[in-house]
């Protein structure tokens, strides 16, 4: 599928809409049909009540050290001051463009290209907002729910601001809590990409992110990251070990698996360039599914074009 270059990347315009309809997790979750079981009157009453539930969000308890999502200011701050700071300033020497494209208030959906085995790009985008933005806000990073099943990861990731990428979670964060959400629409396909396929975007899922942004009525800010592919390259996938260990990916990187599990987080010092693009609003009219699919495709094309531009501009991977 990756023989023909960027223009023929796996977009799946054919089956995407059809599959959207069959996948229950993609459906609009608020007035869901499930409730129809419990008497029609109840459903309408419930929907009327749902109209403005934002007022009823639980208040903040200042004595608490964790948020309702399990996020810990303390642990996040600790990692931010040490590891993230070192990576951002010294190891990856991040260069940021267009930070003002991230809105200072209200919800916004950030959409970025994904790379590598345990990619450092999410952490660097979060750090960029914290460092460069005039009104820094916490960023919620959407991760595979698979991590919730791994001991250790399950405990640590929520503390650092990661949230399982369930459509309902995205909706609550964007619409109800009006916060920043970072999403990698390539999903699992993006993190399993090999080094030789670097900077070539995979299919953007089924365009769920566009419908999430539309439902929550928030802008989509595209983020392009160059450097992460070289920082954590994957040369191959070891299928046998993957099957044997039952993990969803068992990559071969410069340091993994021969330097042990921590090798997965051993990054090469590539230079990071992060560019935030102009926000777009999703106004889908008419045939909603098709319109959303179009928006998703446009976002993808823009990120892809900018990535090629950025890779073309750089003189060196490392400097």
């Amino acid at each position: 599928m990756d023989r023909g270059g960027p223009s023929t990347l796996d977009v799946a315009p054919d089956g995407a809409a059809a599959r959207d309809r069959t996948d229950p997790r993609v459906d609009d979750r608020r007035p869901a049909p499930a409730n129809g079981r419990c008497s029609g009157r109840a459903t309408t009453a419930a929907i009327e009540l749902r109209e403005d539930l934002r007022r009823h969000l639980p208040g903040v308890e200042p004595e608490r050290r964790l948020s309702d999502w399990g996020r810990s200011e303390r642990i996040e701050g600790l990692v931010d001051r040490t590891l993230a700071d070192f990576l951002y300033h010294h190891w990856f020497r991040c260069e940021v463009e267009g930070i003002d494209k991230v809105p200072a208030g209200g919800g916004a959906l950030l959409v970025a290209n994904d790379s590598g085995a345990l990619p450092p790009d999410a952490a660097m985008i979060a750090k960029a907002i914290r460092e460069e933005h005039p009104h820094p806000r916490p960023l919620h990073i959407m991760v595979e729910h698979l991590f919730a099943g791994y001991p250790g990861f399950s405990m640590l990731l929520p503390k650092l601001g990661c949230v399982a990428s369930h459509p309902a979670n995205v909706q609550r964060l964007l619409y109800d809590e009006e916060s920043l959400v970072l999403l990698f629409p390539e999903g699992r396909k993006g993190t399993r990409k090999l080094y030789r396929d670097r900077y070539r975007l995979r299919r953007f899922g089924r365009g769920e992110f566009a419908s999430s942004a539309r439902r929550a009525d928030v802008p989509i800010v595209s983020v392009c990251v160059v450097g992460a592919e070289e920082a954590a390259p994957i040369f191959a996938h070891i299928g046998l070990l993957k099957r044997f260990t039952g993990r969803w990916s068992f990559p071969l990187t410069p340091a993994f698996p021969h330097l042990g599990p921590l090798g997965a987080a051993a990054y090469l010092p590539a230079k990071f360039r992060i560019r935030f693009l102009e926000p777009v609003r999703v106004d889908a009219g008419g045939d909603e599914r098709a319109a959303l699919q179009t928006v998703a495709e446009e976002v993808r094309t823009r990120i892809q074009a900018t990535l090629f531009e950025m890779v073309g501009e750089r003189d060196s991977v490392w400097l």
Binding site: L146, A148, A168
Partner: peptide, 11 residues
């Protein structure tokens, strides 16, 4: 593990 963080009544 693939639960939403907050279940609403219609889920």
């Amino acid at each position: 593990q693939d639960d939403p963080a907050f279940f609403t009544e219609d889920m």
